[in-house]
Nucleic acid binder design. Sequence first.
DNA 1: TTGTAGGCGTTATCAA
DNA 2: TTGATAACGCCTACAA
Lengths: 334, 334
Amino acid sequence: MTPTIKDVARQAKTSKSTVSRFLNGIPVNKKTEEAIIKAIEELNYHPNMNARRLVMDKTQEIGIIVDDISNRFYSPILKGIGEVLDANGYSAVYYTWNKSKRRETDFLRLLYEEQVDGLIYVSFARRDQADVEQMREAPFPVVLFGDNAGVDDIHTVDVDNFSGIVELVHYLYRIGHRHIAYIAGPDDIGATKYRSAGYVSAMESLGLAMNPDWICTSDWSNQGGYTAMKKLLQSRGFTAVIASNDESALGAMTCLQEQGYSIPRDFSVVGFDDIDIAQWIFPALTTVRQPFEQMGQTAAQFLLDCIDKKPMDSNRRRLLKPELIIRNSSSNPN
Amino acid sequence: MTPTIKDVARQAKTSKSTVSRFLNGIPVNKKTEEAIIKAIEELNYHPNMNARRLVMDKTQEIGIIVDDISNRFYSPILKGIGEVLDANGYSAVYYTWNKSKRRETDFLRLLYEEQVDGLIYVSFARRDQADVEQMREAPFPVVLFGDNAGVDDIHTVDVDNFSGIVELVHYLYRIGHRHIAYIAGPDDIGATKYRSAGYVSAMESLGLAMNPDWICTSDWSNQGGYTAMKKLLQSRGFTAVIASNDESALGAMTCLQEQGYSIPRDFSVVGFDDIDIAQWIFPALTTVRQPFEQMGQTAAQFLLDCIDKKPMDSNRRRLLKPELIIRNSSSNPN
DNA sequence: TTGTAGGCGTTATCAA
DNA sequence: TTGATAACGCCTACAA
């Protein structure tokens, strides 16, 4: 049988309460303290968390719900979350799920079942309004990344997708491009509409023509970018391609290179995200960097403030600014 | 106050015990069953897991300890683990940690504290023998990936690193290469010694000369591969490079391409792992694919068998075979 | 500073 | 089938 607080008490010749107090940092007699430490050591005692949580109604754990746990650009987000939680005495527990069988809202159960003190949803997929409303009704704090489905009174963190693409268009314009193609993202991602809107808005404000043949959609995979580029190449006249994420930008570059084109001599290609590999492909990819780590920190701080019922800014949706990273996949057109 | 089983009982005009039985799938009177369902619905009742776990001494959860949660090639491992756990009524909970502040063995606490029923360690870093022995002494089952630090009576799953590299050497030999350079991995990874041993063994058995200037070390990053390749280029005469992982292979390719070399015309480059991006770089990378998903399944099955105390094969270290994937970064030398 | 006693929300035993 | 009742291991008044 695994030892309990009672066994420790007996061994240390004191009572359960005293041991419990010691375990919770409440000062006890120096002499008994030593005896308790010795007993814990000898018995290899570990507190039973389930019992503790049952009586405390608190876990000191935050559930992080991740739709794709190995998504490389979630890494700095998770790092940012972890830092803030750590500094505040909370630990992070990660959950992920099989998209076909479960839904994000299934994890609200963790809150009701008192397995965690709060939840952070890390996903950039588009959400249903009903789901987000359900999250808002949860008995403990919930913070989201990405799409809030128009529900403004739930805490959300996202990057400013619109202005990120606007920056790219302006940059390409600045170095001389006037004919810019665009590879849009999939409809099931919340950011897609904002990025596309950024393209349209910037092109219009610069007075650049938008040829419908120069706009294509990809599913944001390498393959998707490859296929989109192939289609784009059926029409001519553009000198630059904005892929709405780095992965499809990579696919697009591969397609171009396979056809014998040189980047950026024949075409400039730019992406969005700044994934790790972006600087390691050849040529290195010009892109827009998302402030992932900062986003993670923001989300965690949001959540902790909710838990502590701190007075908060009334604006519950925070959009962080992305940063233009210029590398070698873009240059003046000839 | 959140409702308890007692509230449900009162509302449904029955006893706690009956509600508990219903919740656990034990048949109850049709009439009371309906009343219970109705009460649960009305009260929005959710069982308190901490109370349940306290009395059951069981969580139906498996802790997955991942050293780098966003490591892309862990994805299929986690998928494989998830599938098997799911099919057996267990769920996976992921934990990760800050390498500088914590150690793998810190998570054994989850077992002692009864937060999970078993642990799977996903990491390919080299381990201390003392740590692995501590894992072996844990009160609940533990399964490892990668290095077992020579402790043979703990369940371990790994890829056959040795034979993977041997296959690469033989393949290059087959297509005509006789002068093969090697970019070794970092010492803190368990696989490094097996892969290096595979290179040495295969070269010797084929009677190929090993020029010490043709062997370099990288930290398995893109940058590491890049730097190693630069160094390799200071000596001449080799026609092919084996990088001991894909990431460094990518870095090596970038270096070669920057210097104006064409792959595979001037040099063949091959890697190890078959990460997603391997087929999307240009030219697509010849590599050795690890059976990650199968490894995940194997580990999970190992663990469940331990939990169920099933009679098991006495061999506790299982090495799965990698598969040679031939793409375009390798060809006959001229 | 310490110990006694009660309760947290479940499940499990046992008699009805 | 059902309903008391006693655990499970811990924390926390309260009284000493």
